[in-house]
C-alpha cells in the first residue's frame, strides 16, 4: 500500500499488520463500539455513567469532537462529555482526569478513538510516517468504587518547546521529526516512571507489568532497558495494530487484561508519550 518492504517495517517498528476503518466508519462510530464493549464487560448500564472523556486527535471536525456523540449514542443522557485532542498521550491524560472526576461524578467512561488512516494515507504521503499508523478505539471505565484495578498514583507532564516536532496542522499532512520524538520519549518516559515509583516507595523491579503507548516496539525495548527490567514485562501488541495513537494504550490494556491479568496486589504501570510533548505514567494495583 505504501511501498515499503515488510521486513524493513518490522525491523524498524515491530509492526506486521494494521487495521483501517472503512470510509464511512468515523471516530465516533469506532469509539462507540469500544465503549459498548467496555460497558458490557463491566456489566454497567450507560445510564450509570456520570461523565465521558474522549481522546481523539483525528476527529472528522474541528468541533465538536466525538465525545458528545458517543455519550448520546450510548444512551448516557445529558452528561458532561469532553474531548481531548491530544493524540498519543490522550488516553493516559483522560484516565488521570477520570481519577479526579470520579469522586464527584461517579463512573467516568474514558474512550480513545483514532482514524489515523485519514491523515497518513493521503497524499503527499511520507512513507516512513505512513507505515507506522493504524486505526482503532479503546475504552476504560473509572469509578469511585473498587474495580479490578486501583489507580494508586499518576504523573502527567508537558513540554511545549518541541510542539512542532510532532503535529497535525490544519490542511497539511502529519508532521513528525522522528529523531526528536524518540530522543525525548526515550528520556522522559523512564524518568516519569522512575519519579512515580520513587514517590510510592517502589522500584521498577517491583512492577509486574508495564503497558505503554504502542508507538514503536524499539522504543518500548529502549524504555525497558533504561528501567533495567526484562522486556517481557512490557505488554506489546503493536505487531497487529501499528501505532493507533491515543487508542493504543487502551487497546493494549484491554488485551493485557484478557491475556495476562495481574494477580491481586501486583503493580502495573501505564505510560504514554506523544505530541505536545505530553507524557506521563500511571501506577495501578490489582485488587
Amino acid at each position: 500500500m505504501i511501498g515499503c518492504e515488510v521486513d524493513w517495517i518490522r525491523s524498524v517498528s515491530g509492526i506486521e499488520e494494521r487495521r483501517f476503518a472503512a470510509d464511512g466508519e468515523t471516530t465516533s462510530l469506532m469509539g462507540l463500539q469500544a465503549a459498548k464493549r467496555c460497558l458490557q464487560q463491566a456489566g454497567v448500564q450507560a445510564t450509570a455513567i456520570g461523565y465521558l472523556i474522549c481522546s481523539c486527535g483525528t476527529s472528522e471536525r474541528r468541533f465538536p469532537g466525538p465525545a458528545a456523540s458517543i455519550a448520546s449514542a450510548l444512551g448516557c443522557g445529558e452528561i458532561p462529555a469532553i474531548d481531548l485532542p491530544l493524540a498519543s498521550a490522550g488516553a493516559l491524560v483522560g484516565l488521570d482526569l477520570a481519577r479526579d472526576l470520579a469522586p464527584r461524578y461517579g463512573r467516568v467512561l474514558v474512550v480513545a478513538t483514532e482514524k489515523m488512516s485519514s491523515v497518513v494515507l493521503t497524499e503527499p504521503m511520507e512513507r516512513g510516517v505512513s507505515m507506522l499508523f493504524g486505526d482503532g478505539a479503546g475504552a476504560c471505565l473509572v469509578g469511585p468504587e473498587h474495580g479490578r484495578l486501583q489507580i494508586v498514583d499518576s504523573f502527567i507532564a508537558s513540554d511545549g518547546q518541541f510542539a512542532d516536532d510532532l503535529a497535525l496542522p490544519f490542511g497539511a499532512p502529519l508532521s513528525m521529526n522522528g529523531r526528536s520524538v524518540i530522543l525525548h520519549a526515550s528520556r522522559k518516559i523512564p524518568r516519569a516512571i522512575g519519579s512515580l515509583l520513587e514517590r510510592n516507595g517502589l522500584r521498577a523491579a517491583d512492577v509486574a507489568s508495564f503497558v505503554m503507548h504502542q508507538a514503536n516496539v524499539n522504543l518500548i525495548w529502549k524504555v525497558a532497558d533504561a528501567l533495567d527490567v526484562a522486556s517481557e514485562r512490557f505488554f506489546t501488541n503493536i505487531a497487529r495494530y501499528g501505532n493507533t495513537s491515543s487508542a493504543s494504550l487502551l487497546i493494549a490494556a484491554a488485551e493485557w487484561m484478557e491475556t495476562s491479568p495481574p494477580e491481586p496486589g501486583e503493580h502495573t504501570v501505564l505510560t504514554a508519550f506523544g505530541a505536545g510533548y505530553q507524557w506521563g505514567a500511571m501506577l495501578l494495583r490489582a485488587v
Binding site: 513540554d159 518547546q161 518541541f162 522522528g178 529523531r179 526528536s180 520524538v181 524518540i182 530522543l183 525525548h184 526515550s186 528520556r187 522522559k188 524499539n218 522504543l219 529502549k222
Partner: peptide, 25 residues
Amino acid sequence: DSFALPDLVAELEEQFSVKIPDSDL
C-alpha cells in the same frame, strides 16, 4: 539513527560529565 541518538547523548553526558537539559535535545 533515531534509536542510537539517545545512546550517544547518554554517553556524552557520562564521558564529558555534563548534564544535557531537555531543552537542548
